[in-house]
Design a protein around this nucleic acid. Sequence first.
DNA 1: TGCATAATCTTTGTATACAACACAATTTTA
DNA 2: TAAAATTGTGTTGTATACAAAGATTATGCA
Lengths: 217, 217
Amino acid sequence: MRESNLKEKAYAKIKENIISLAYAPGEFLNETQLSEEIGVSRTPVREALNHLEKENLVRVIPKRGVMVSEINIADIMDIYQVRELLEPDIIRLYAKSIDKLLLETIREKIISSQHSQLSYEEQYKIDSILHQVLLDANRNKYFAAVLGTVFDQNQRLRIMTARTIKERLSQTHIEHARIVDLLLADDYDAAADAMLLHLKQSCEASVQCMMRVQVEQ
Amino acid sequence: MRESNLKEKAYAKIKENIISLAYAPGEFLNETQLSEEIGVSRTPVREALNHLEKENLVRVIPKRGVMVSEINIADIMDIYQVRELLEPDIIRLYAKSIDKLLLETIREKIISSQHSQLSYEEQYKIDSILHQVLLDANRNKYFAAVLGTVFDQNQRLRIMTARTIKERLSQTHIEHARIVDLLLADDYDAAADAMLLHLKQSCEASVQCMMRVQVEQ
DNA sequence: TGCATAATCTTTGTATACAACACAATTTTA
DNA sequence: TAAAATTGTGTTGTATACAAAGATTATGCA
């Protein structure tokens, strides 16, 4: 991390801990403790928390504390509703500008991952590349902001449901490979449709996982 | 304004001044001056500015000052790109839940405004009701956040181009009336299409206005 | 014991003091 | 005269002290 100011440093560290579930959903944090942990004063920590609150990653309860946001099924529906609406259209609008060499590299990675035993971490990385490329390809700051926010939420969700989502990973690779192939063939409408289908199936899988997780608890 | 804390009070006041062009695009503000103006310390002002920066209404330049964001044609395209993508789909997803009586009231207002001489302020209010209703109807917090942001930008834009946009207001009323009629008839697909057309025409008009404004300066 | 009430403790909210940096103006030097 | 170094001023960045409010514990009384 190469943050120029302490506010960003605090933001990055706290967000990292929330997304990786080091801070559990529902857990209470407090500003003093966080500032000691990060090694800065309360001021940049507060600024970071304000930012995180707008991204729905924490909830500041006046005079009480800061709660790490929980994720429920309604949240998952919200997240995927945004993705299903935006990502196909971002393909239609911006996919043309994506470097073909980059897409080839991604394709290679997806294909090779299907024939080798990779750790969950590595598989997840490959899984997120494609969506990250779309996020980077789009030149609209409002899209970028909202998509970045839902991706962060999505990553946390993914780790929460890591145990059961493994069944879905190979299927995800197949769907991603299809999308990349269509992008390489400059067939953006078909790629957008494939993306929509992929997201619908991911959403369904996430909801199923979350229901199982909630039953277990 | 009934803000519980000073951060929100500062946010509301500064935003009001930016949107109403009391603070001109490109103008430099500073935290001390703002805090004196509002009657609070620098802390809540800074928190408000952080928020406004994320909404693209100001730009904080380290150790230099706070600049009120300018609006250029690229920004207009970004704003309308978001609206054109989201608002028609929000109609498809959520219009069913809008209270029909509310729509009737809006319809009355639009119709009656066509036969009377209203101030620009009043006309604008009627003009924004329909979009505000859609913003309220949608139950997805991520959509609400991004749409709220672009509406604020849009309002500022509208005031900037107030002189020339008057030609467009009566046309806007006709387009809005058509959308409301289709919503009342439960024809959501047609309403969504009408909304898309309306937004495309509004965007075109805004770009034209902005080009004229920029030439004049 | 059970309950109301007071005292205390923990937490965020706000104000303020000081540090660090950027830029401009001024002075010094070649 | 021109360029470089220095100083001064204004700004945000950060730390910290104190205020306010809510939660928790302790206390006193029936």
